[in-house]
Design a protein around this nucleic acid. Sequence first.
DNA 1: TCCGTCAAGTCAACATAGTTGACATGAGGG
DNA 2: CCCTCATGTCAACTATGTTGACTTGACGGA
Lengths: 155, 155
Amino acid sequence: MPKTSQAAGLHRASLAKLHELDAALELMYYGWRGMTLEADEYLAKQGLSRPHHRILYVVARRPDIAIGSLIEILGISKQALNRPLNLLLDRKLLTSKRAPEQHRSKLLRLTGAGQRIEQKASDHERKVLREAFDRAGASGAAAWMAVMGAIADNN
Amino acid sequence: MPKTSQAAGLHRASLAKLHELDAALELMYYGWRGMTLEADEYLAKQGLSRPHHRILYVVARRPDIAIGSLIEILGISKQALNRPLNLLLDRKLLTSKRAPEQHRSKLLRLTGAGQRIEQKASDHERKVLREAFDRAGASGAAAWMAVMGAIADNN
DNA sequence: TCCGTCAAGTCAACATAGTTGACATGAGGG
DNA sequence: CCCTCATGTCAACTATGTTGACTTGACGGA
């Protein structure tokens, strides 16, 4: 895992703004960092990292998901999924079993321990969002969601 | 460089929401992806990637920056900076020269070609932001900035 | 029953992006 | 003359991803 020491001390640099939107661009960068920082530190303490969390997050919201669907949702190759997935299975944060009537696919599910870790890691991220939304009020939060939706739909 | 084929086809998955803020959390994820997608594709065509862009972005806004300061701002080690930086120097997108009265530090500057690439890559990112802000209006954009500032300051 | 297809698993080779640690070089300053 | 400081460079390592090639085991149809 990459060390977090540098990232943790990373402060928002004050750079000259060459364009009107440079401030927004940098906010996106530091916003992403700000949201994920504590979650990554928590995960690192568990010997896990972002890819593991992404797997846990998706499986939590799609119990009995097949591996192929997981690959599709995560947007990575089977081989890239393989190692973090096996780690999670080895550590019994996930279980896999064949479907009773469809033995081709393996169905993934979180164990209790997996649920706890997924929840704690995601809680760190949600906490940052909640505090920001509280400061901005309901209308500010709604505006943020609308703008982010427009940005996210760019593909 | 990692291929963009998977990322380009990556659609916003519809996952069950276990928490109120899950939608916001996913918007941050896909928002980051949405903003950087086209810029990354452009950079890949130039044989460059995000680390190169980050260097170009900072040097554009801090002409005559020393290498040590660049390391601090980027939050990576000297050794990690070394390869992308040398590539940019080799390709004459950056120049380095010693200060006239302070021969210890090297001062970095963009060349014309470097400026063009920095601008085009950043333009892809700003375009996505601009379109989203246009849809949201000035007050929506301001609210977005306020919320992102609160999120970014989490450290 | 055999054969093709499909989901999954696994191996090798590679690229990228980062880390530490150790050490060299060259300029400036006391 | 020596110490410090900025930079450069080498080696070894980790982590996350990629392709390509191949196996295994289950299912389903001719």
